[in-house]
């Protein structure tokens, strides 16, 4: 498992195939950000695809390769907002709810709320949560990817999950 900083360095050095690892690594995290804004699976996929191309073109402007994840998610957020401004009516809840049925996936039961809560986490915690719980990476792998010590990742992950639980509880009590 190559750290982000190494992959970014390789891509900058002309090894384009190293970028594929970054795409695989962050496509779900990108989808969470884009889906939360657009509420439309097809549009979110397009935005994530476009964002990866934009990130590749702008890779030279990224000072610290280990921060690729957070930087990329900010690009996705901006691209998604731009897309929503262009097509404001497409971002309806119906299109979000209809999509998984059309694809044969299970009902997005509570997915919208969970995405909303994940979005309220700080960027670094959001990244770790998606890498761990959506992509299934181990703590050790996340430590390697992000270049942070394992202890830090463990602490940040448990803090993020606790925060998610607290926020969910607060949300329930306010309903």
């Amino acid at each position: 498992m190559q750290p982000d900083s190494v992959l970014v360095q390789l891509v900058r050095g002309g090894h384009v195939s190293a970028y594929e690892d970054l795409v695989v690594r962050y496509r779900r995290a990108g989808m969470v950000t884009a889906l939360r804004i657009l509420r439309n699976h097809h549009a979110a996929e397009d935005v994530v695809q476009e964002s990866f191309v934009v990130a590749y073109r702008r890779l030279d402007t990224l000072r610290d390769g280990s921060k690729f994840g957070g930087w990329f998610m900010r690009i996705v957020g901006r691209q998604a907002l731009r897309e929503r401004r262009k097509h404001p009516r497409e971002g309806s809840l119906e299109s979000m709810e209809g999509y998984p049925r059309a694809r044969g996936n299970s009902e997005p039961h509570g997915c919208e709320q969970l995405m909303e809560l994940i979005h309220r986490l700080p960027v670094h915690e959001r990244l770790i949560v998606t890498l761990r719980h959506l992509d299934g990476h181990s703590i050790g792998e996340i430590a390697e990817i992000t270049g942070r010590p394992t202890g830090t990742v463990t602490k940040q992950l448990s803090r993020a999950v606790r925060r998610l639980r607290d926020m969910a509880a607060m949300q329930r009590s306010s309903q």
Partner: peptide
């Protein structure tokens, strides 16, 4: 954990997304 599992399934992009990105890159 169960909700994360459902979300992971829900946000799964189309399988050829990586291929499409790499083609453009």
């Amino acid at each position: 954990e169960e909700q994360f599992r459902m979300l992971a399934k829900y946000v799964e992009p189309k399988p050829n997304l990586t291929t499409l990105v790499m083609e453009r890159v």
